[in-house]
């Protein structure tokens, strides 16, 4: 798989390159700012772009804007955004075009290479990888409305589903069978009044759209 990296700190740029190359990726470009990211994505058409939120010159949300711009130029370009803090606004912006291939993770997640690389692969395949932190911000302490009708187990499943995990991965995490997960999911979709869907990422997007459209 071919990847590009946008990260302004050389230390982390090199680290990410090592991490991805050590896990079978080919890093075709590692750049330090948003403009360069848009350029290399346009030129290389990589399978995935891993982007730091904070890039020069503004050091604010340059990375999110560059990622959105790159996706506009290269439709469907899978983008994984890394951030020091999780802001649900950024997550919502990234997901706003309703297409798959989006990830938004805390930078800390690179500490677990297996999980991190799995997330990069999932995004590259058109799936979703949303940080558990972002999911819990979206779910919040909401106990009202249809979310309040979910059982605790169903909330666990919903959170993992919102992170973008497959049925198999959810089953493994919760130590239950895939069949049980499927049953929980159809119950959740029913309670939220969402149409059943087989494709993981479409299901995630539906759930996230629901959370966005039904704010606290």
């Amino acid at each position: 798989m071919r990847a590009v990296i946008a990260e302004d700190l050389a230390l982390l740029r090199d680290g990410l390159t090592r991490l991805l190359e050590g896990n079978g990726f080919e890093v075709v470009a590692a750049v330090a700012d948003g403009d360069a990211l848009v350029r290399v994505c346009h030129g290389h058409k990589p399978d995935v772009a891993v982007v730091d939120v904070r890039l020069p010159p503004t050091f604010t949300d340059e990375g999110v804007r560059a990622a959105l711009e790159a996706r506009r130029r290269v439709p469907g370009l899978p983008v994984l955004v890394l951030s020091q803090y999780v802001e649900r606004t950024f997550a919502a912006e990234l997901l706003s075009d309703g297409q798959g291939g989006v990830g938004y993770l805390l930078k800390d997640r690179v500490a677990d290479p297996r999980d991190f690389v799995e997330a990069v692969r999932r995004v590259a395949r058109g799936g979703t990888a949303l940080d558990p932190e972002a999911v819990s911000q979206l779910l919040g302490g909401r106990r009202d409305g249809p979310l309040g009708e979910l059982t605790p187990r169903e909330r666990d499943v919903l959170a993992l589903m919102a992170e973008g995990r497959s049925n198999a991965a959810i089953a493994e995490k919760l130590v239950v069978t895939e069949g049980a997960v499927e049953k929980h999911i159809s119950s959740i979709l029913g309670k939220l009044n969402l149409p059943p869907s087989d494709a993981d990422h479409r299901r995630v997007l539906a759930v996230l759209a629901w959370l966005r459209d039904n704010p606290t």
């Binding site: 700190l9 230390l11 982390l12 680290g15 990410l16 090592r18 991490l19 050590g22 896990n23 020091q84 930078k107 800390d108 690179v110 500490a111 677990d112 290479p113 297996r114 991190f116």
Partner: peptide, 19 residues
């Protein structure tokens, strides 16, 4: 840019080393 980035790098390198 300083300590936080370095600690992320530490975690990353240790994770990769394990792998």
């Amino acid at each position: 840019d300083g300590a936080q980035a370095r600690i992320v790098a530490v975690a990353m390198d240790l994770g990769l080393a394990d792998q």
